[in-house]
Nucleic acid binder design. Structure first.
Length: 485
DNA sequence: TTTTGAGTTGTTCGA
DNA sequence: GTCGAACAACTCAAA
């Protein structure tokens, strides 16, 4: 009798609820499910209805579609499939668990306020149904609550945060793809009305199909992430510290959208970079490795800030910025969005973003500074545009970085740091290759003036007039920021 | 307990 | 041409 009960209980499946962890390798929830010996149902819920959950932007929706398709393909290759649902997750997941007579639901944690509330509600409902609910850390090197100052408060300064993080210990070795995956392959949630086909989510644009530039620049999903990582480690890690600021050199990792959707994990990057560094004899190995890891550190710090400041995407971390006299200027905002400000480094960056769904890190800082300081437009307008157009639009990184540039953040740039778009262009794109790639108007312009084309007179008539003059705009910004007292 | 110094990414000005 | 100072206020850890 007892053994019969045991056997029938083991026949109950476990649901792995996938979210921002669309990968098979180093997926703690999936590995735990594999180890518990049950049949595994992999489920994804497209939830745009839960209170406070921010709908994805267009570029991120496009990425999500590909990542889900790749995940489904990978699961089918192993005899399973991905069950896609639509609806309120705190209803759908318990319903799916009941329909499938699941014994447990496992997932990897999220850190935004609304997402945590959803997950908490799911856990409460499951427990009431006497279904096991377990969550894991698959998204971060360090849990946000595990790193504290000497007095027990959250850090507000990056360097101290990162030093303290090292004190917590080395991130663990990443998990492999589970060796034995007993995957469910039947129809998903027979009794459920929330099951849909991936195409039903309409995540990809159709009319018009604006995603051509995205498709030709990115291979979404886990295999694409591994290929991109290998390329970066082989070709660019050895020059990372020296060249990562030069947008024409492609020396950055371009792994951000993969991290955003969990097509790869930070632990995998941490250890793969170390292995690659150990295998080389090139100069500055240590500096390159530490520089790359500190960029992962900034991602950790952003999640730390998000966790401890749930409203980071909408509220100034420094409340004195609530008094900032932001300008309302629809024409200037549109010029910035469309890459028609008349400053080549700004316009090239904004067109790269529009075309590829991504922008080089150095250029992101310059365009953000330009919007907030030269145009005196609220950082939230810029944050929203990036949220809609970036394939890596991340709830933590995007908001924290905009607040950093604006000066309203926890450990923000000083107010008087106003990037000069001409000097930044000349310093980091000295021969103008980057701006010419995105601005055909500047074809043939000498590198000596390519970042200040207005000095050519009528020779570049096709190129936009400057919408503000740097010196005047800089002074206006300094006055406004100083006025915050 | 108090003090001190350092802190991702810069620019301008005047000597 | 180069070079140092000034441009705030606050956080955090070490002394």
């Amino acid at each position: 009798m007892a053994t019969e009960v045991l056997r029938s209980d083991l026949e109950r499946p476990v649901i792995v609820w996938l979210r921002d962890d669309l990968r098979l390798s180093d997926n703690p929830a999936l590995t735990a499910a594999a180890n518990c010996g049950r049949r595994i149902i992999c489920a994804f819920v497209h939830d745009e209805e839960s209170e406070g959950v921010r709908p994805l932007g267009g570029a991120a929706r496009w990425w999500l579609h590909g990542a889900l398709r790749e995940m489904d393909d990978a699961l089918r290759g192993l005899g399973g499939r991905l069950c896609v649902h639509r609806g309120v997750a705190s209803v759908v997941i318990p319903q799916l668990a009941a329909d499938s007579e699941a014994a447990a639901v496992y997932w990897n944690r999220r850190y935004g306020a609304a997402e945590r509330h959803v997950d908490e509600a799911v856990k409460t409902t499951l427990k009431a149904q006497r279904i096991e609910a377990r969550s894991f850390n698959g998204h971060l090197l360090y849990e946000p609550w595990s790193i504290k100052t000497g007095s027990g408060t959250p850090f507000r300064v990056f360097s101290a945060f990162w030093r303290a993080a090292h004190g917590v210990g080395e991130p663990g070795q990443p998990l492999g793809v589970p060796a034995r995956l007993n995957l469910f392959h039947g129809p998903c949630g027979q009794a459920s009305t929330t099951g849909v086909e991936l195409a039903d989510l309409a995540l990809e644009p159709t009319s018009p199909d604006w995603a051509g530039g995205l498709r030709s620049n990115w291979r979404r999903g886990e295999a694409g992430a591994q290929a991109r990582l290998e390329f970066f480690l082989n070709e660019h890690l050895h020059e990372y510290a020296d060249l990562r600021d030069f947008p024409d050199r492609s020396a950055t990792s371009r792994l951000s959208p993969y991290l955003r959707f969990g097509n790869i994990s930070p632990r995998q990057l941490w250890h793969a970079a170390e292995a690659a560094a150990n295998a080389t004899t090139s100069l500055r190995v240590h500096q390159n490795l530490e520089k790359f890891r500190s960029e992962l550190g900034w991602r950790e710090f952003s999640y730390h800030l998000l966790y401890h400041n749930p409203e980071i995407a909408t509220q100034n971390l420094q409340s004195k910025f609530d008094q900032m006299p932001w300008r309302s200027d629809a024409d200037a905002l549109r010029a910035w969005q469309q890459g028609k400000t008349g400053y080549p480094i700004i316009d090239a960056g904004m067109r790269e973003l529009w075309t590829t769904g991504w922008m080089h890190n150095r250029v992101r800082m310059v365009v953000a500074s330009f919007l907030v300081k030269h145009l005196l437009i609220d950082w939230r307008q810029g944050e929203a545009w990036f949220w809609d157009t970036l394939v890596d639009a991340d709830p933590a990184n995007n908001a924290a970085s905009w607040q950093w540039v604006a000066g309203s953040g926890a450990d923000a740039a000083p107010y008087f740091r106003v990037f000069n778009p001409v000097l930044q262009g000349e310093k980091f794109d000295p021969d103008g290759r980057y701006v010419k790639r995105w601005l055909p108007e500047l074809d043939g312009v000498s590198s000596s003036v390519v970042h200040r084309p207005w000095q050519l007179g009528n020779n570049v008539e096709a190129y936009a007039e400057r919408i503000v003059e740097h010196g005047l705009a800089r002074q206006r910004a300094l006055d406004a920021f100083k006025g915050l007292g």
